[in-house]
């Protein structure tokens, strides 16, 4: 089902939470709202869920205005960050909760719970209490409790934030598989860029109550349009630049040829650590030399900081670099993006 967020504005007292946000979510899409804490991503999710009222603007679900529908009237379910499982109910009753609220006949509830339970692989645990489960299991219960209602839109509010790193990755992959299997529209909120890139079809990067950039994971990672997006998704080197002659940019490293000529007097050049070339090929024209300030062993690669400008890059070259080594690296023109914001 499609969700249309139209000019949604929300303030808490004097704090701006959302500033005229527009967003279209296509049916069956898995999108991620990504941003630092306080960027408004959770507020947007809660407004879609009906747990929060926007000051102005509209929410349309499949073209129908649901802005003033209460949470219990919307065919939308949420997996809460804290899971919010009912401690006085066992797993089975937690999962059946939504169906019971809607007075679905008990004869129908039984098989549907069983189905939801096996979907999240919790078979044999349905008689347990919530506190007898691990964090990962509780998360699955929360997922099953939402999915059993066959929501038109499933909202996930930082569902992995309480889990340890390994489990998180496993569940991200599982969540993606689940989305492929069930279809349906999923909206996930996270501040974890890895998670956003892993699970979603489309990433919506938010900051200070606005949508800064949206696109497929590779679009937002490869072609950030602002310094904020480039630094929030992965690591990036930023190089202050002035417009030079014949498409060149004047920088502290000397003249460099960026992806495109600078259209303004001042700009920032951006290149990701893994795009810096070392050893440097003969054809590379943007050559930078420096001394290794710091070299960190990362198992499958080495992470290097280069003096004097602190250029950061990774190398998987077979000869490990040592602090003090004097080297030359390449900044390929194709990867040297120009940012104005």
């Amino acid at each position: 089902m499609s969700i249309n967020v139209i000019a949604v504005h929300k303030t808490y007292g004097t704090t701006l939470a959302l500033s005229n946000v527009d967003l279209i979510v296509k049916p069956g899409e898995f999108i991620t709202l990504l941003g630092p804490s306080g960027c408004g991503k959770t507020t947007l999710l809660r407004i879609i869920a009906g747990l929060e009222r926007p000051d102005s603007g509209y929410i349309h679900l499949d073209g129908k205005d649901i802005t003033h529908d209460k949470a219990n009237q919307r065919p939308i379910n949420t997996v809460f960050q804290s899971y919010a499982l009912f401690p006085h109910l066992n797993i089975r009753d937690n999962i059946a909760f939504g169906l019971r609220s809607r007075r679905v006949p008990e004869a129908e509830i039984g098989p549907r719970v069983d189905q939801a339970v096996s979907l999240v692989r919790l078979d044999g645990m349905t008689d347990r209490r919530t506190h007898q489960l691990s964090g990962g299991q509780q998360q699955r219960v929360a997922l099953a409790r939402a999915l059993i209602n066959e929501p038109k839109v499933l909202l996930l509010d930082e569902p992995m934030s309480a889990l340890d790193a390994n489990l998180r990755v496993a569940l991200q992959i599982e969540l993606r598989a689940l989305h492929r299997r069930l279809g349906g529209t999923f909206i996930l909120v996270t501040h974890d860029q890895d998670e956003a890139l892993t699970v979603s079809d489309r990433v919506i990067v938010m900051n200070k109550g606005r949508i800064i950039q949206q696109g497929t994971p590779s679009e937002v990672y490869q072609r950030p349009t602002s310094r904020f997006v480039a630094s929030f998704l992965g690591h990036a080197n930023f190089i202050d630049a002035k417009r030079g002659s014949s498409g060149m940019a004047e920088t502290a490293y000397g003249p460099l040829r960026p992806q495109e000529p600078l259209s303004e007097e001042n700009a920032t050049l951006c290149i990701r650590p893994e795009e810096v070339l070392y050893p440097i090929p003969q054809t590379c024209t943007n050559r930078v030399s420096g001394t290794v300030r710091e070299a960190i062993y990362r198992g499958d690669h080495q992470e290097i900081w280069l003096d004097p400008q602190g250029l950061r890059f990774t190398t998987s070259g077979c000869t490990p670099l040592k602090i003090g080594d004097h080297i030359e690296v390449g900044l390929p023109t194709d990867n040297l993006r120009v940012l104005y914001a």
Partner: peptide, 11 residues
């Protein structure tokens, strides 16, 4: 949070 969960689940 449980109140919100209950509302979310059609209570």
């Amino acid at each position: 949070n449980l109140l919100e969960a209950a509302q979310d689940l059609y209570c």
